[in-house]
């Protein structure tokens, strides 16, 4: 199995440790994974802002770059949800891949902390990482399933478990008041669980919530799910 690693632009620049954790997981699981250089952005920020035309060259570049790979994985549900229907569909969010394709049922790590799971909109409603609260379907959560493999993790979910955190790409700067308000509400719900960490499959949401938390000087920490899953590696 030949797997290509896609590290979204902002993860590359701001959260490289999320990329490192992703790599470690695959390496530990014995999967040949490579990081093709010259990758940039999936194009979603421009497309959601109304400039999908500007994103098309990026999608094309993406397709060419990963052409020889059987699968592509990325530690960001939102980017994956954007790329998936616009390419041949072989891209997976890391947790999704571990859960559905590799069916991982054992990991060596310990993470003796209380974590609140952030169910990001695109992860839930586009990639189906968990059952959306709106639908009458059996309840499941791939992220929670994976977290149970790690010793010591206590998993919580906030009230309004999959309400939007208000990031929304350029929505956050075009509608800053309502975006900040959504972020504050979401953060308060996470904090109310008593968790020490907020975790999720989208660093973009975590970045937004972290921005709110730092401004409000809230001590809660933020960590991508893959970092918890790679805790013992």
């Amino acid at each position: 199995m030949k797997v290509g690693l896609f590290i979204p632009c902002y993860v590359n620049a701001v959260y490289p440790e999320v990329g490192v954790a992703s790599y470690k997981l695959f390496d530990y699981l014995g999967i040949e994974i490579n990081y093709p250089l010259n990758q940039t952005c999936c194009g979603q920020p421009m497309a959601n802002a109304g400039f999908e035309q500007k994103a098309i060259p990026m999608i094309k570049h993406f397709d060419e770059l990963f052409e020889s790979y059987e699968y592509v994985v990325a530690p960001s549900a939102s980017c994956v949800a954007f790329v998936k229907p616009r390419t041949n569909g072989k891209i997976y969010e890391v947790c999704e891949f571990l859960h559905d394709i590799l069916k991982v049922n054992k990991l060596p790590g310990k993470f003796p902390h209380k974590v609140s799971v952030h169910n990001s909109c695109h992860g839930v409603r586009e990639l189906h990482l968990s059952s959306p609260s709106e639908l009458n379907i059996p309840r499941y959560s791939k992220i929670k399933n994976l977290l149970t493999l790690i010793e010591g993790v206590e998993v919580f979910e906030p009230e309004k478990a999959d309400e939007c955190c208000g990031f929304g790409g350029m929505f956050s700067i075009e509608e800053p008041s309502v975006s900040v308000c959504m972020g504050q509400d979401k953060l308060a719900n996470h904090i109310a669980t008593g968790a020490e960490y907020v975790t999720g499959a989208d660093s973009s949401c975590l970045m937004h919530l972290q921005g709110v938390a730092r401004r409000e000087k809230q001590p809660i920490e933020f960590i991508h799910v893959v970092q918890i899953l790679a805790a013992g590696l």
Binding site: A13, P16, S172, H208, G211
Partner: peptide, 28 residues
């Protein structure tokens, strides 16, 4: 800076993932 309204900017990492990869810091 619309982001700065109610939110702190995330600090950039000292080294990006790409730099780490090129320097062989990702692969053991």
């Amino acid at each position: 800076n619309g982001w700065g309204k109610g939110r702190e900017m995330p600090p950039f990492a000292k080294e990006s993932f790409t730099q780490m990869w090129k320097k062989g810091k990702v692969k053991k």
